[in-house]
Amino acid sequence: MPVTFTFGEMLSARSVIGTTLAELGETHDNLWVLTPDIGATLVEFRDKYPERFLDVGLAEQACVGIAAGLAYDGNIPVVSGMLPFLSMRALEQIRTDVCYPNLPVKIIGTHGGLVGNGGSTHYAVEDLALMCALTNMTVTSVGDPNMVGEVLRQSMSMPGPIYIRLAVGKKDKVLYAEGEHDVRIGKGIVARDGTDATIFTHGTTVAQALDAAEELAADGRSVRVVDMFTLKPIDEALIAQCADETGGKFVVLEDHLAYGGLASRIADVVADRGIRLNGFERLGIPQVYAGFGDDEELRDKHGYGLAATVAATRRVIAQPSWPTSH
């Protein structure tokens, strides 16, 4: 990136996608970009490589199928669009045409979570559960806009498919200074260290978790925040380490259904590895169709806003502690 942004500034993740793809198009002459009529931020690639850009119009299923066909022939296709439609309308194409033959198709898009005020047709809230169920799929959810570019760059050398989830992608808070963290697909990021509890989160709610940790620090609580931006494969070692180092007290916060996303991924690891916890709370969307409203209002209404995050973290810290072992 030619311009450096610092913590707290707003940056459009969509524009990062556009510039990164244009940059990657130079070094990868087999990179294609496809979209079902969501191409406004792809113009830098489109104008530079019009012969490797395809806007199929409103046809998500064909878009993913065409990408798979390109990948069969040795190309690296990136499909960019709105995730509620890519993850559900084109689910069988992703599963059978992309994941089954393990092709390097990248699915990247916006509207993960209760964002954008479009109503329930336009919120992707089940997408991580669906994508994590697919064999061969790598599943990511990225909050920091600069990180989106890094994940895309790394994904170029991956032999199989990847799903990259963003919020609206218009104004995202820059969370990390350049080079502050080693961004590796499959490795969680300790965004803030602490010893009393860990908040695991991903995507747009990382900023909220950091705010909660800051608020708790004011009354002497030391809360770790883990940006678990890769949900699959999940960083099992980091989960075990956090159980050890933060008293076995976990809060999982996500802009996704409370069951089926990161909380379920972590609960699986905890059960499978026999990790002993002293408190576990999951904050996410309950089984409701969420309605209209601003992002923060909807999070508050549905019980996973900032106040709820602070309260849940206090509750897990207050739970009696047993020695952890695993």
Binding site: N117, G119, F292, G293, L298, K301
Partner: peptide, 16 residues
Amino acid sequence: YGKLDSAYGMHPCKVQ
């Protein structure tokens, strides 16, 4: 229109 708990949003919902 578009506000929290409104029946009128960007896309129509029969239930609301």
